[in-house]
Design a protein around this nucleic acid. Sequence first.
DNA 1: ACTATACACGACCGATCGGTCGTTCTTTTT
DNA 2: AAAAAGAACGACCGATCGGTCGTGTATAGT
Lengths: 215, 215
Amino acid sequence: MADTKTDGRRIRGERSREAILERAVALASVHGLDGLTLGRLAEAAGVSKSGFFAHWRDKEQLQLDAVDWASRQWTERIVKPALRRPAGIRRLLALHEARLAFYADGVLPGGCFFFVAQVEFDDRPGPVRDRVAQAMSRWLAFLERQAAEAVKLGELPPGTDTAQLAYEIEALGEAAVVQARLLGRDLVYTRARRAVLRRLRALATDPSLLPEESA
Amino acid sequence: MADTKTDGRRIRGERSREAILERAVALASVHGLDGLTLGRLAEAAGVSKSGFFAHWRDKEQLQLDAVDWASRQWTERIVKPALRRPAGIRRLLALHEARLAFYADGVLPGGCFFFVAQVEFDDRPGPVRDRVAQAMSRWLAFLERQAAEAVKLGELPPGTDTAQLAYEIEALGEAAVVQARLLGRDLVYTRARRAVLRRLRALATDPSLLPEESA
DNA sequence: ACTATACACGACCGATCGGTCGTTCTTTTT
DNA sequence: AAAAAGAACGACCGATCGGTCGTGTATAGT
């Protein structure tokens, strides 16, 4: 039952480590980075608590790795696919839709824990707070840059408040997870998608670049 | 130092109980209803842990009371003031603005904990989950009703998707708290206000009912 | 002034928290 | 084949969790 050794280097626990990390991110999205307990994590990942400490020095190291792991997933599943779409308003919409699809996949069942942790760690300076803040502001800055690109391409009118638009896309995407618990995923995700689509169509100099609302 | 006896009935610890409850709500907005610990709460409220248990049977009772207390505050500080505004789109905007002002006051420094608790308690049936879900859906239903009223008054075009509009107002209001931690309150609250104002002005049959954007 | 009551306290409880330790088993290196 | 280096375990640690108990005390009603 040896792990597939993809290269010459060290192997064994990597699969286990990755599996634990994935569970940790999922749990943190529900309970928060701080509310995540190592006992529940170990049980959920099928290892003992001391098995966990073979991979991480302490809880803080796990939290840091969890932030990095989630950031990497965010990039792979949301940013990269959207970057294959043409720049401008279509890419903005693609980013929003990829995010909803990512949430629907259940990797972050409670929504992105950056947003909970941003509050949790606000008054507790340290590397975890820094990394969470960094991940969040990178995402907001990225959204804003894409909006600015759309302005430069002439797909949005000059003078468009790109930071404002980034705020709205962020808000409408994140809120979906919470409301989905109450009203059902399909219904709420449709609303979340339509909200941004409408907003972009209303702003766009050429709305025909975007799909129709009923699509 | 006797409490003001507003009526003939029981008095003494009420002030203390109210003070504890207020602190509990504030803490729960940051750490979640579940992440709230009685030790921190007792310390923050200046009582002993056993002093706390003079007022509540257990943590669950406190959580229930906290939900009710927050709901009441929500009504007093957001709903009631907005109900004094004329029905229709002006009232919708007033609701959004009152919410931002409420958040700015710091009663719920982490944002409304309904939204965190909705995720926290999702897979744990019980009275707390029920009450949280009830509070959230009451708020969404109220927003939707006000939007429907605006349609009936002719301030929004017939056929407007009122549930969609309620979703957007909710999302744009709640997200502000989180982003405010990162980017500063004034900046983000301005964005949150402008987002809903723009949306309403774009929809309205008579935009002059609403203030200018630059206001 | 006396008594009943409710509030608040410090001390304490079992369970769980994050974390350590010594051991065992497997894998990699030599 | 022997030795070195992970990886995982069960047992256990002090601290903190939610919660109990007995006591002291301030107040309300008589």
